[in-house]
């Protein structure tokens, strides 16, 4: 059902279609004189949204986000029904009728409500306070801020201004970010590859010797060791990872690994070794190039 590359659009389309189906059904029912009153309508919309976010959207979203979305839906339903006096009165009517017990049926509903609601609130309070042994929610910083400069193998790099020395064109000139797309569809393993492509090839070799076990041969974070970790290694093909970062950030992250993460990154939950102990700075720059070339993303720049 979920098509790779179109998933976010699909979700928005599902929500749009569901809304128009609801409007259509409501229109038809109104035409035939069997309109659903405002109160049950509000409940139906709420349940419909809950079903989509809880069961249609896969993989399941974290509970914190689900509650946020449902809070939004609740607010919007309230705004919708109370945006006109007519709608608001219609919505309130069954509630007021119940409270005032205007008919025997409403009186029964009131009696049940007055018993059930305090019980539910009591259970909610108990449930909230009872000690639990579930894993706690973690507010993990995925991209902790890098330092202003970093020292790798005795060499100091200012991350704001440092450049990848291997980012060069065929003539050996520096290749500005954004100009490398001409190489994206070319074969770096061709015998005549030179300049940018040559370094991509070297970076690729280093990647497959060291990184792909975890990050995967498609760079999607699903290598053969990946599922031994939680979270699994970073998915470079996702537009939310290396595409959002400067090349120097990725360089720093590779060099320092999990142990080199700053305090603000706690809980670190990163098993990546500090690659400066195994690779030279040149090799790290080349791996960097391969990652961007393979995913066809551009590093972030600010000029």
């Amino acid at each position: 059902m979920w098509i790779e590359g179109y998933k976010p659009i699909e979700l928005l389309l599902i929500l749009t279609i569901a809304t128009f189906i609801y409007i259509g059904i409501n229109y038809v029912l109104q035409k035939i004189g069997k309109r659903i009153p405002a109160f049950p309508q509000a409940l139906l919309i709420w349940l419909g949204a809950w079903s989509i976010f809880k069961y249609v959207l896969t993989p399941p979203i974290p509970s914190a986000l689900l509650y946020t979305y449902m809070g939004l839906v609740t607010l919007v339903i309230f705004l919708f029904i109370s945006s006109t006096e007519k709608g608001w009165s219609e919505f309130k009517r069954p509630i007021l009728n119940t409270v005032m017990a205007v008919t025997p049926v409403y009186k029964s509903v009131r009696s049940v409500s007055f018993v059930v609601l305090p019980l539910l609130i009591g259970y909610g309070t108990y449930d909230f306070n009872v000690p639990k042994f579930d894993e706690p929610i973690e507010l993990r910083t995925v991209h902790p801020a890098p330092p202003a400069s970093t020292t790798v193998r005795g060499q100091n790099f200012t991350l704001q201004t440092a450049r990848n020395p291997y980012r060069v064109d065929d003539k050996g000139e520096y290749l500005p970010v954004g100009k490398e797309d001409k190489y994206f569809k070319q074969n770096p393993f061709a015998p005549d590859a030179k300049g940018y492509l040559l370094y991509v090839k070297e970076g690729g070799s280093i990647f497959f010797q060291n990184c792909h076990f975890c990050h995967g041969d498609n760079l999607n974070g699903r290598g053969m060791f990946a599922f031994a970790f939680n979270p699994i290694p970073a998915n470079f093909s996702d537009p939310g990872t290396i595409a959002q970062l400067q090349e120097t950030f990725v360089f720093w992250r590779i060099a320092k690994g999990g142990p080199g993460l700053p305090r603000e990154g706690f809980p670190w939950a990163s098993a990546m070794p500090p690659w400066e102990e195994h690779l030279t700075t040149d090799e790290i720059w080349k791996v960097n190039m391969f990652e961007y070339w393979h995913t066809e993303f551009f590093p972030r720049t600010w000029d």
Binding site: W2, P59, P60, A234, D238, P239
Partner: peptide, 24 residues
């Protein structure tokens, strides 16, 4: 949010830090 707040089990269910649908 870009950085989701979740339990380790939820993280595992998603299959990575970035949710494939709403992560974008």
């Amino acid at each position: 949010p870009h950085t989701l707040v979740m339990r380790p089990a939820e993280l595992k269910a998603i299959g990575g830090q970035q949710h494939p649908v709403i992560g974008n």
